[in-house]
Design a protein around this nucleic acid. Structure first.
Lengths: 242, 242
DNA sequence: GAGTGGTCTAGACCACCCG
DNA sequence: GGGTGGTCTAGACCACTCG
């Protein structure tokens, strides 16, 4: 076995974690196989056991490993794509899944928040929100109508940004809001006339409707969006835990 | 401030975590408020800083607190219902949301696994699977057609169970498989003739289609299900993290 | 520069599982 | 009893943020 060499600038536990992940991905560690004990691994990587545990902890959280108290640490069975579980935006998704993403700005306006929008964003009804409507294309085919509402107070300069080449979230992060989580409600609906025209489908065709609130890591709601996805071309994968 | 008293038998970091959680719940620590530094907290609770960090870590993972490197640790803003994030079954969901759940067994058969089913369950194509179809009612209205596939090898006695009064998962757990997570793919589809008849909707009406693989905590796939939910009555809420 | 969280060490004892 | 993971300590230095 090759000796482990630390790289400067990257935390050791991250390096070890990725090294383990690679071993699993390459099949050096097989499904169901028991890992060496934490003490052995710590010795192998020349770190303290606490550091070793931190690496393992991350992979357990991801579902790649599991532990049995008094028994050992094992490689979990299926290769769950944790990616699918993660909150991503349209452009990241395109990169992962290998399609070409484009967005066309349909409209941008500053309007008073409707009650439902206000509740989701935790602002007063009637407070100003920026409403951004975009049409999104995968490999040139329109797949999603995206209708976002953002509190004006949080991002007063949003209107001056080019939203066709960068994602809203990029702008949020530039303003110091780290996008952390989203809660989304999903429904199957019939396409309205407007949505049908935009996506070039029949009125009444099935559409995956998504109502989403996005939160920064301090818990501030920063975006509330209605999303209409073409039923025949779009699917959404999520993972849930008990 | 009252002195912190350790209880025997419960890990200290759990006690501290719950103590902090209570302070937040009771409003002693307010939204957005900065906590004392980790060193101060460690001193207050009379533990090492590493132990203190473990308590905080858990609450950060839950989204109750957030940290800013070089700045401090803060109480996050809204209380997200973590419930929505969790994997639940139809009967639990009914209990939470306050509707009356019923299931009607449509069919149960032992068949060879189709390629797609086999891949999801990580068994060979043609291996025996138990296919259980049920129709599910909320307050007496049919809302879901549930078409589950379970590896026969794992649960050979499944066929003798009454599936109208207990959930599949109850049976899995009796057999020693802890249901841990599920990956589900969602689509909007048109109702087929069969599905439409069962749920008393029009053929072609929008249906929220869900393809779900359920895993035990060691990663074994134990159930693969096609689920057809009435679009006009059913919605699904999920939370995603980055 | 002072204060914060982020990483890391080299130990220790405990709780659990198995043969 | 022997090995495993679970918890915990008392330090240390680093990276980041802010005034």
């Amino acid at each position: 076995m090759a000796e482990f060499v630390r790289t400067e600038g990257v935390p050791v536990y991250v390096q070890i974690r990725e090294s383990l992940r690679a071993e699993i991905a390459q099949g050096l560690l097989k499904r169901g196989e028991q890992l060496p004990s934490e003490n052995e691994l710590a010795a192998k990587y020349n770190v303290s056991r606490m550091t070793m545990r931190q690496s393992i902890e991350d992979l357990v959280d991801e579902g790649l490993l599991y532990r049995r108290h008094g028994v050992g640490t094992f490689v979990a069975y299926p290769r769950l794509q944790r990616d699918h579980t993660r909150l991503t935006n349209f452009f990241d998704k395109a990169e992962n899944e290998g399609f070409r993403a484009q967005a066309k700005l349909l409209s941008m306006e500053i309007i008073p928040a409707a009650p439902k929008v206000a509740e989701a964003l935790d602002i007063h009804t009637g407070s100003r929100v920026i409403r951004v409507k975009t049409l999104r294309f995968a490999d040139g085919v329109p797949v999603t109508v995206h209708d976002a509402h953002i509190p004006y107070k949080l991002f007063p300069n949003l209107a001056s940004e080019n939203l066709e080449i960068q994602h809203l979230w990029t702008i949020f992060e530039k303003a110091g809001y780290r996008v952390k989580r989203a809660v989304q409600r999903l429904e199957a609906r019939e396409a309205s006339k407007e949505v049908a025209q935009l996506m070039k489908i029949k009125e009444g065709a099935p559409v995956l409707f998504k109502e989403r609130t996005v939160y920064a890591d301090d818990g501030t709601p920063i975006e509330f969006t209605y999303c209409y996805n073409r039923g025949d071309l779009y699917s959404l994968t999520v993972a849930l835990e008990r």
